[in-house]
Measured scan of single mutants.
Amino acid sequence: TLFEALYDYEARTEDDLSFHKGEKFQILNSSEGDWWEVRSLTTGETGYIPSPYLA
């Protein structure tokens, strides 16, 4: 399933992933509550992002 970022986000820890509004992601793991592990389709990087920032 693909999701798109609604807002920009700046990583706060080394496990987080910074991203920009409009960036698209593949969800790798959504079992961690509000923090999902994703792969950016723009950069190929993986990390955790806050799920409320996605649509």
Rank of each mutant, 00 (worst) to 15 (best):
D15L: 13
W36N: 00
H20S: 10
G47T: 12
W36V: 05
N29I: 13
H20V: 13
G22N: 02
L28T: 03
L6I: 08
L28H: 01
E37R: 11
F3N: 09
S31T: 11
L41M: 11
G22R: 02
K24Y: 11
P52F: 15
E14S: 12
Y7A: 07
P52R: 15
T43R: 01
R12M: 11
T42G: 08
S18G: 05
S30M: 13
L17I: 11
W35G: 01
Y48E: 07
Q26V: 14
R12K: 12
H20T: 11
T1H: 11
E14L: 10
T43W: 03
D34R: 05
S51F: 11
L2P: 05
E10W: 10
Y53I: 07
A55F: 10
G47D: 00
D8I: 04
G33I: 08
L28Q: 01
F19C: 05
S31E: 09
E14W: 08
A55V: 12
Y48N: 07
R12E: 08
W36C: 03
Q26H: 08
T42L: 13
F25Y: 14
K21T: 10
A55I: 12
R39G: 01
N29R: 06
G47Q: 02
Y53K: 06
Y9G: 01
L54S: 09
L54V: 08
E32T: 11
T13L: 10
L28W: 01
G47V: 03
S51L: 04
S40Y: 02
D8W: 04
S40G: 03
H20P: 04
K24Q: 09
G33P: 12
Y53L: 10
S31A: 10
S40Q: 05
E23H: 06
A11C: 07
A55M: 12
L54R: 06
L6A: 07
E32Q: 13
E45L: 14
F19A: 06
I49S: 00
W36P: 00
S30L: 08
L2W: 12
S18F: 06
G44I: 15
S51K: 09
P50C: 14
S30R: 12
P50R: 11
G47L: 06
Y9V: 02
K24T: 07
I27R: 04
D8Q: 03
T43I: 02
T46P: 00
L28R: 14
G33H: 10
V38T: 00
S30Q: 11
L17S: 03
F19R: 01
Y53H: 07
K21P: 03
S18C: 06
K24F: 11
Y7D: 07
E32H: 13
S31K: 08
E32W: 10
K21N: 03
Y7V: 07
E45T: 14
E10I: 12
Y53V: 06
G44Y: 04
W35M: 10
D15W: 15
T46N: 03
Y48F: 11
A5F: 14
V38A: 07
E23T: 06
E45V: 09
P50V: 03
S18D: 02
R39Y: 07
E10N: 09
F19L: 03
A5K: 02
E23Y: 04
V38Q: 00
S18P: 04
S31W: 09
Y53D: 05
S31L: 09
K21R: 09
L54D: 05
D34S: 09
T1L: 13
D34P: 07
G22F: 09
